[in-house]
Amino acid sequence: MRDFLRSNKREASAFVVLAGLLSLYLWSHPIGPTTYVMTIWANQCLILALAAMAQFFAVIVRGIDLSVGAVMALTNCIASYMVIGSGIEMAFGVVVVIAAGIGCGLLNGLLVVYGRIQPIVATLATASLFVGLALLLRPTPGGQIDYDLADAMTLDVLGMPTALIMTAAIILLIWVPLRRTGLGLGLYAVGSSEQAAFQSGMPVAKIKLASFAMGGFFAGLAGLYFSFVTTTGDAGIGPNFTLNSIAAVVLGGVALRGGIGTLTGAIAGAFILKTIGALMFFSGLPPLAQPFIEGLILAGAIAIGGADILRIKNRLEAFGR
């Protein structure tokens, strides 16, 4: 247990912070810790967490994805047309939405791997493309998602918020198995040193493509889940999610230079970020001061994460970071 904690130091501290913030939130909430309050909180957190997972897969292979929000907007708009009707139609719609997400991720991956464009600029350009497509589908917000399905996804099962169950399912059914496969290991190898990975005979191009495709998959899921929460399609949701997803992965201990961090950490980071926002809402601070305090806490949290620089004995070590 102690070894486990030591090797997952970043994630462990993120979870401690999250637990503290959550108790503070539930304590300060006027209604208190009811299922209703937990469900709303968890839904908001899961949207950002899915966006952060999408960002994680780009960052882990030393990339960055500025199109996360745009893919969410596009898939949200597709969902507002297709996730409605009979059961089969809805199932088909969900498949199309997720396939669209994977397609967007693959396009990013192709531009990065074969087009040799730096991820930050490639995804900047594709973001414009995806938002354009989303606007083509929904010039103004509208459309509808099947209410029964949306309710099933955003309420609770026996008092447990569905969003939390899904978060746990993603960690246990996707992340834990993936981490044990060659691909999971490859993600870290490519992120740590692409050259070393290549020279060890790893299929670097395939791993990067797969990573971006998985990023697209989660961005698609994020758009889909956003649709369940809002039950409408809106092409303008992107920009906030892109930037917050980056902040979330960093808060969760994922290094932007690649190769360090876990999906669980990214999820924790997203939950922390959203909980801070929710805390603000009931904190009694003047509403006008809240954006400033939020920014201050974000900067502070990141600065604390970087504070171990002060413990470095040899100044040269700082440059490897």
Partner: peptide
Amino acid sequence: GVAVLRIPSMVWTLAINAMLLGVAVLNTGG
């Protein structure tokens, strides 16, 4: 933040941007 704390510029400047937004909102009342 970038040179001394060695925080990735992409996140640090993003946080600074968020704080500036906050100051502006505080000052102008939105």
